[in-house]
Design a protein around this nucleic acid. Structure first.
Lengths: 345, 345
DNA sequence: GAACAAAACCGAAACGTTTCGGTTTTAAAG
DNA sequence: CTTTAAAACCGAAACGTTTCGGTTTTGTTC
């Protein structure tokens, strides 16, 4: 049905190789250029990327594997990455593995079969082995947000430890001592780093670290609700909580809301990620923000770089991006209240 | 590098066609089956989907074109659709056109070049012409959430009019008369239907329709903020507002929050979509919900159906799914208050 | 206008499958 | 054991490109 390169050759009286050369940016005599363009126009020719892919062994498509599309953090990153990739002619094959290690593995197989040129991935399981197969096939892999043990490839990370340290410091500065954290799953890279940041901040301020103040959630809304309830039950003197991702922040707010706990009068809260949600909350939430757009952009750019230098070997880049902080009214400033109290006397 | 079907043929002593037949589910003698499977195992053979695609003229991939990945409504639909498609072996090539008609057109071209087998799309511009090219190529198109004028293809819609009518009725039943609406862009199909539902509900209750009570936003957070401000300025007697999508609901809440308007004491609000957000708001928001999972699932299933019957002709299906309503505390029940008042006397 | 280098052009072969039409093998029936 | 229908098997050709090595054309210089 659709016209092929052969049709264009026939129509113009030129050779196959010439048309191909033209299509790939080669030089062609002016009059031939005109003839070719005319024929393409008339016959509605469009190069068949599939055939091209077979011949060149490059599909110009990138596999994107993420734990959850329906997650604002992932979605923002992917949006940006997809745009950067497509602008360079690369298609994004997106697979959502629902934070399930088994599905993640399946998806990697799937993408390998489809012969994508590279893999952009926010890991959720410990799938080092599967990912290795990409590297063995000399196809670049860029990891986002999380490293995978024993896997040497480019990655774009965030300064999780620093971010949490900074947030906890703000709580300490405001006079809080009984600071809880809703951390993520134990095996999760970001969760480990964030918890570590929490411990470091407390240690530096010489505040004893209590197990009862550290509760783990599973990065879901429901998990956040449960963790917050647990934290409150276990610690009658709880004065502030840091919640270490967006979904759990949402869950925490819902739970506090349902328990009738006032923010920040009865409990101070610092959340994570979603600026708009923070702004729409009552009171406005103070949150740690991650540079999602930049993460996506950098990851895609790293991928493109590897793709064009087409050497998967060489020193791998480990980017570490800075987080931000958006101030709200969800943290009670005990220090200030005390000093006001004192001046009053 | 990677093993091909030829290598398997050589290793097993069987013919090319036999291997191909085996790979495609054909019958093979038991002993040969074993030999083939062994050879596949040993040589790490994986069928090359690109070559297969060239030969069969089917890439087993579906283009998914949406206005904004980073939008919970879209993301939920796509998550579901992608899962259904992939389970049947179809890859999803996702393109985000940022609600931009020009980019949307580009993306359609892009997907056509990639020879996707079909197009799943939440339209944002009036790109009938571009989409036609898919149909001309005998490739199925399934529209989601919006129709496109003069384009006859399957679509999965939502009962927008009914949803808004129902929501407005609830406001009326609660005793509200000065009901505003923050509607979507004029050219938007869903926006038209929703506005129409609003008008019908008012008309039926014999409440005069006032222009000042109908404000349009652009379906963004910022647009919602602006629209809410306008609505309040224009209508001093405003008693309730219906906001017709999630982003604008978020914007409205932010704006009310910043203006210090109390919900529902000073203003009643009904929002759209995001259940979790509604639950986390203070007070809990009453919202209209859309069956996003079902939309995604149905759309993907419709696509698969068309794909396997491989006749794009025939009667097109127009599915119309029911919306839901989640009750919160953001609507003041004036009627009830009045009757309480009366019994008190 | 002859000589020459550079630029443009050319067709065949190859990429890894599926499919067509035909041949061989199997096993059931006589 | 022979016949026969069905099942299994087979290789060549084709899908639409790119690329290799080689040929022709162009235009500059003498």
């Amino acid at each position: 049905m659709a016209a092929t390169i052969k049709d264009i050759a026939k129509a113009t009286g030129l050779g196959l190789a010439t048309i191909s050369s033209y299509l790939n940016g080669g030089n062609v005599r002016e009059k031939n250029r005109i003839r070719i363009e005319q024929a393409i126009e008339e016959l509605h020719f469009e190069v068949n990327e599939v055939a091209r892919g077979l011949k060149t062994n490059r599909t110009r498509s990138i596999g994107i594997l993420i734990p959850e599309l329906n997650n604002i953090f992932c979605a923002e990153i992917i949006t940006e990455a997809e745009e950067v990739l497509r602008r360079q002619g690369y298609a994004a094959m997106i697979c959502d593995c629902r934070t399930d290690a088994h599905r993640e593995k399946e998806a990697i197989d799937f993408l390998l079969h489809r012969r994508v040129d590279g893999l952009l991935m926010i890991p959720s399981g410990e799938t080092g082995a599967s990912v290795q197969r990409f590297l063995r096939a000399k196809k670049p892999v860029v990891l986002i947000d999380r490293k995978i043990r024993n896997l040497d490839c480019d990655c774009v990370l965030v300064d999780n430890k620093g971010a949490v340290k900074d947030a906890v410091n703000r709580l300490i500065t405001a006079g809080h001592r009984e600071i809880g954290i809703i951390a993520g799953p134990e095996e999760m890279y970001t969760a480990q780093e964030r918890l570590y940041g929490y411990e470091q901040a407390l240690a530096k301020a010489r505040i004893p670290i209590r197990d009862s103040l550290m509760v783990r959630g599973d990065y879901t809304i429901r998990g956040g609700m449960k963790a917050m309830r647990e934290l409150i039950q276990k610690n009658t003197d709880l004065s502030a909580v840091l919640v270490s991702n967006y979904e759990m922040t949402l869950g925490s707010v819902i739970e506090l809301h349902e328990l009738g706990v006032q923010i920040p009068e009865e409990l101070s809260l610092i959340g994570f990620d979603n600026v708009e949600f923070a702004r729409a909350s009552t009171p406005r939430l103070s949150i740690v923000t991650q540079p999602t757009k930049e993460i996506g952009k950098k990851a895609a750019e790293l991928m493109l770089l590897r793709l064009q230098e087409d050497t998967v070997s060489g020193k791998k880049q480990k980017l570490r991006l800075k987080t931000g902080f958006v101030e709200g009214n969800s943290v009670r400033d005990i220090k200030r209240e005390e000093s006001l109290e004192r001046t009053k006397e």
